[in-house]
């Protein structure tokens, strides 16, 4: 009873927040509703007994992805009134396409029947004695190791792509070289001078930096290697 109530509650909030994501006037509010939606989806996962997925959904989507979303949306100064200008004009076309899709889906669902043999082909039969997490690990890292590694490659390509398309070498800028800072000794840069009591320090040398010995910043070392060609 309580589970059913909770399900309808979470599902209703999920759908409500999903609607708000698209209709909210303020993009920041949209993202916040998106986050609310993620939470309710996670709650639904919990009700379905997939606690690992629920937590991962919160960690990955709410904790990382949506933060960056919010970050970007806050930084951008989007004029949404302007973006919605075409909405009225294209609404009828969009509505027609949407309605047709809905109709088609209705027809498909009307003929809905599960293949009777489907149960025999279940990819991931649940093993009762294994925890949710262990079970998922088994599937991901043993049965589907190929797909897992391929996803890794996809992410690698995404990373290369982001770097290739956006990284610009700023040229000979002076950057902090931590190793050099740490390796530097006080004796190399400072001179300690006795200041006798009562006389005070003379105007000239009581503690002064040694003039830097024509030390040019080694720009080449920091220019992103391999991008020297442009």
């Amino acid at each position: 009873m309580i589970a059913a109530l909770a399900f309808y509650l979470f599902a209703a909030i999920l759908i409500g927040s999903a609607v708000m994501v698209v209709t909210a006037r303020n993009p920041v509010h949209s993202v916040l509703f998106l986050i609310l939606g993620f939470f309710n989806a996670a709650a639904l996962f919990l009700l379905a007994g997939a606690e690992f997925l629920a937590m991962i959904l919160v960690i990955v989507y709410v904790g990382a992805v949506a933060v960056l979303f919010l970050f970007v949306v806050m930084m951008l100064d989007i004029n949404f009134a302007q973006m919605r200008e075409g909405f009225q004009r294209y609404a009828p076309v969009g509505a027609t396409v949407g309605a047709m899709l809905l109709l088609e889906l209705g027809i498909v669902l009307g003929g809905w029947k599960f293949a009777p043999d489907a149960a025999n082909f279940r990819f991931a039969p649940r093993i009762a004695e294994l925890e949710n997490t262990a079970h998922l690990g088994q599937l991901l890292y043993t049965d589907y190791i190929l797909l897992f590694q391929l996803s890794g490659l996809v992410l690698l390509v995404a990373m290369i792509g982001a770097i290739v398309l956006t990284l610009r070498d700023r040229g000979p800028s002076r950057r902090q070289i931590i190793a050099r800072q740490i390796a530097r000794k006080a004796s190399e840069t400072m001179v300690m001078v006795d200041a006798p009591i009562g006389t005070g320090v003379g105007a000239a040398d009581y503690l002064h930096p040694i003039p830097e010995a024509a030390e040019k910043p080694d720009t080449h070392e920091h220019a992103h290697a391999g991008h020297g060609g442009h």
């Binding site: 690992f52 919160v58 960690i59 904790g63 933060v67 806050m74 997490t133």
Partner: peptide
Amino acid sequence: INVGVLYLFAISSLGVYGVIISGW
């Protein structure tokens, strides 16, 4: 719960929202 560490991690990763929302 079985996924206690993940729960803690999830909650601590949400802490940033208080900060972002207040700032905005």
